[in-house]
Amino acid sequence: MRVTGENVVRQIKLKNEEALPFLIKTYSGLLNAIIRKYLNGNHQDMEECLADVLVSIWFHIDSYDSSKNEFKQWIAAITKYRAIDYIRKSEKLKEHVSNVDFDERMSSQVSSKQNVLDLSSLFNELNDTERKIFEKYYVEGVPSKEIASEFQAKDSWVHNKLSMGRKKLKTILLKDEV
């Protein structure tokens, strides 16, 4: 059945998946604006948050009461709530990372410089593409999806390159040990 603004709530309740592209097409502009207001920064976080909002709408549609609120208002409120939740989570994560970072720095201050040097010289054993992908993924912490889009390739291609690179480095390290 064709999904429209009038029947979208009913179609979600009926679990008609055609309602999903309709929701995205019709409301993603507004939801994206709400998310961006709260989550200033990581593009991937914003997309993930938007996907979470849509999943919440999908699973909690029975909580929507058309006599109390407009559908647009209800999903906007969910979006605001999710975005704030994301900020809380990322702040907690940052706090955790900085604590771990501090502990690690205290315990390995002496060897850290050497490790960085070893890492960069080790990465030189890789070809240009592999090195770029390794640095982005393991040093900068860029998600594989973003790396893939940068290289206009699939996510699986990035993981393939990482796997091949790891094998190469493993062989080199094992050789050095022997």
Binding site: I24, S28, G29, L30, N32, A33, I34, R36, K37, S56, H60, S63, Y64, D65, K68, N69, K72, Q73, W74, A76, A77, I78, K80, Y81
Partner: peptide
């Protein structure tokens, strides 16, 4: 009462958001 039911009572000023199409 679930949080999603509570959100039926929330009214946002949607005019403050300029749509950002994807």
């Amino acid at each position: 009462m679930s949080l999603f039911k509570d959100l039926n009572d929330v009214k946002l000023d949607l005019s403050e958001f300029d749509e950002l199409p994807l």
